[in-house]
């Protein structure tokens, strides 16, 4: 590819190639503070390529490729090249990673223990993790959490946080402007702006944390906390894992251990402040 870069997010080393300079420059800016080891082989390759050679100049549109591809994914306009790169990174990890159980969940840590939050898009897991990451917690990741089959520990995947719509303003007023990427307006997922995690979170990205609490957040509705049985938590986390089936018995054993050792709750909250208060209350109980 004409332009390429390498970045390491948690245990995953990415090689990102592109027909254009702009998405690579944007990625390099967001990930400038991440440790680099260019000699290490890439675990996942992401390619952003033009649909036809001339499309590199004429109404350029970005196709996402790599070791795994989604055949019906729509190309994105070049102005959204950064989003395309992020989607490509997510795709390669979601479909290709085998070393750990991969949960579609955000996570934050405190005192070496992890809070894992699993939910669909719109559940608020990403925003809650981003806000907690500014308030004394270590952000481990806003999208994926890896669980080590041997130790049972959670491992961080602290990619740049993908803030969406209302969350952009809420987080932007708390952080220095240089920690925010460009506003990507009206993408297929709405408005998006990336947040660079705090330097301490990036520096600690290889430090595992023992899961202490699992939450299934739901944004909207009155504040409520519902304890969740181990069986239901297990089933919901198999649905939230992109590689549970591929891992076979290792995935089964890892997830059974996780839900047996970690209390789980479904929580609803009307706004971020009450969400954070619920989290702090449940955390105090969980680590007592």
């Amino acid at each position: 590819m004409r332009y390429a870069t390498r970045i390491a997010v948690g245990p995953v080393q990415f090689r990102i190639g592109s027909d254009w300079r702009a998405p690579i420059a944007a990625i390099e800016r967001l990930y400038a503070g991440y440790p680099r080891d260019d000699a290490r082989p890439a675990d996942a390759a992401v390619r952003l390529f033009a649909a036809r050679p001339w499309r590199r100049w004429l109404r350029p549109s970005v196709h996402i490729g790599g070791d795994f591809t989604v055949p019906d994914a729509l190309p994105l306009p070049l102005s959204m090249g950064l989003l395309a790169a992020e989607m490509g990174m997510n795709l390669q990890v979601a479909l290709g990673w085998r070393r750990h159980l991969l949960l579609h969940a955000s996570a934050v840590a405190r005192d070496g223990r992890a809070l894992v939050m699993s939910g669909e898009s719109g559940s608020g897991k990403s925003t809650l993790a981003a806000l907690l990451g500014e308030e004394g917690w270590r952000l481990m990741g806003d999208e994926f959490t890896l669980v080590d089959p041997v130790s049972g520990d959670a491992l961080a995947f602290p990619r740049a946080v993908s803030l969406k719509n209302a969350a952009i303003g809420e987080v932007a007023e708390r952080v220095a402007p240089e920690r925010l990427g460009p506003l990507l307006a009206r993408t297929p997922k709405g408005d998006i702006r990336h947040l660079i995690p705090r330097a301490e979170a990036i520096a600690a990205m290889h430090e595992p944390a023992r899961p202490a609490l699992i939450l299934f957040p739901r944004f909207g509705g009155a504040a409520a906390v519902e304890p969740m049985g181990e069986g239901e938590a297990f089933v919901r986390l198999t649905e939230a894992s992109t590689n549970y089936v591929a891992l076979g018995e290792a995935g089964f054993a890892t997830l059974a251990r996780l839900v047996r050792e970690t209390p789980a709750f479904a929580v609803s909250y009307p706004d971020s402040a009450s969400g954070r208060a619920l989290v702090e209350g449940l955390w105090a109980e969980a680590v007592r």
Binding site: G229, E230, G231, T238, V245, G248, E249, F252
Partner: peptide, 22 residues
């Protein structure tokens, strides 16, 4: 089979089919 009791439910992993039964 790998059988893991989990609260009121029991998980059964069938090594032959790689299927999980709750």
């Amino acid at each position: 089979l790998r059988v893991e009791p989990l609260g009121e439910l029991t998980l059964i992993f069938d090594r032959r089919s790689m299927q999980t039964h709750v």
